Amino acid sequence: MSKNGVGGTSRTVTRADLAEAVYQRVGLSRTESAELVEMVLGEMADALGRGDVVKLSSFGSFVVRSKGERIGRNPKTGIEVPITPRRVMVFKPSNILKSRVNGQTISVDDADD
């Protein structure tokens, strides 16, 4: 596992990496593993596109929030510019994931998602 953050090295985990992990751990073929990863990510994307919350126990929640129109300012010129309404996605990690990222162990029974 690599470190991430200031002064550390980081690695990007790709769809192919996830499919390979499924292949190694579950025993599906590589093709089936890749299809499974695509199906899961597709379901998540579809749910978020509808505005649903995607909650993965012991991992976190993906939430779509609506932001209203507001006035922004160009930092170079100082000119005020309207920012149109939009939807943004927010990820809220579970306490278990936060602990794991910080190198601590926590049992599922001790955590409150």
Score class of each variant (00 low, 15 high):
Val26Gln: 05
Ile106Gln: 15
Val54Ile: 07
Leu36Trp: 04
Ser94His: 06
Val64Tyr: 07
Val81Lys: 01
Ala34Val: 04
Thr105Gln: 12
Glu80Arg: 05
Arg87Leu: 08
Thr31Gln: 08
Val22Leu: 03
Ser57Asn: 09
Arg100Glu: 14
Gly78Met: 03
Thr77Ser: 01
Thr31Ser: 11
Arg87Asp: 11
Asn74Pro: 07
Asp46Ile: 11
Ser29Ala: 08
Arg30Tyr: 10
Met89Phe: 11
Leu41Tyr: 09
Leu28Met: 09
Arg30Asn: 12
Met44Cys: 03
Asn74Cys: 04
Val64Asn: 09
Ser57Ile: 07
Asn74Ser: 02
Val40Met: 10
Arg70Asn: 04
Ser66Ile: 06
Gly78Leu: 02
Ser10Gln: 14
Thr105Tyr: 11
Asn102Phe: 11
Val64Met: 03
Leu97Trp: 03
Arg73Phe: 07
Ile79Met: 08
Leu28Phe: 11
Ala34Leu: 03
Ser29Leu: 05
Gly42Ser: 02
Glu43His: 06
Val54Leu: 11
Ile83Cys: 01
Arg100Gln: 13
Val81Tyr: 03
Ala34Cys: 00
Lys92Gly: 07
Ala47Asp: 05
Thr9Asp: 15
Gly103Ala: 04
Val90Thr: 00
Lys3Ser: 15
Gly51Cys: 05
Val101Ile: 15
Thr12Val: 14
Lys67Trp: 03
Lys3Ala: 14
Asn102Leu: 10
Ala19Ser: 05
Val108Arg: 13
Asp110Asn: 11
Arg100Asp: 12
Ala34Glu: 04
Gly8Lys: 15
Met39Gln: 15
Ile106Tyr: 12
Arg86Lys: 04
Arg30Phe: 10
Asn74Arg: 02
Arg15Thr: 05
Ser29Glu: 03
Val54Ser: 07
Arg25Leu: 02
Ala16Pro: 10
Arg15Gln: 06
Ser58Thr: 13
Gly5Ile: 09
Gly7Lys: 14
Ile79Val: 13
Lys76His: 09
Ala19Glu: 09
Arg30Gln: 12
Phe91Glu: 10
Gly78Glu: 03
Gly78Trp: 04
Asp46Gln: 15
Arg100Gly: 10
Met89Pro: 14
Glu35Cys: 10
Ser61Lys: 01
Ser10Thr: 09
Leu56Thr: 04
Val54Trp: 11
Asn74Lys: 02
Lys55Val: 05
Ser10Gly: 14
Arg15Trp: 08
Glu38Gln: 05
Ser107Phe: 12
Ser61Ile: 01
Pro93Ala: 04
Asp46Lys: 15
Thr84Ile: 02
Asn102Thr: 07
Thr84Glu: 11
Glu69Phe: 07
Val101Gly: 13
Ser58Val: 11
Ser107Ala: 14
Met44His: 08
Gly103Pro: 05
Ala34Phe: 02
Asn102Pro: 08
Glu32Lys: 13
Arg65Glu: 03
Ser33Gln: 00
Gly103Asn: 01
Arg86Pro: 08
Ser33Trp: 00
Val22Ser: 03
Gly72Trp: 00
Ile96Asn: 05
Ala45Gly: 14
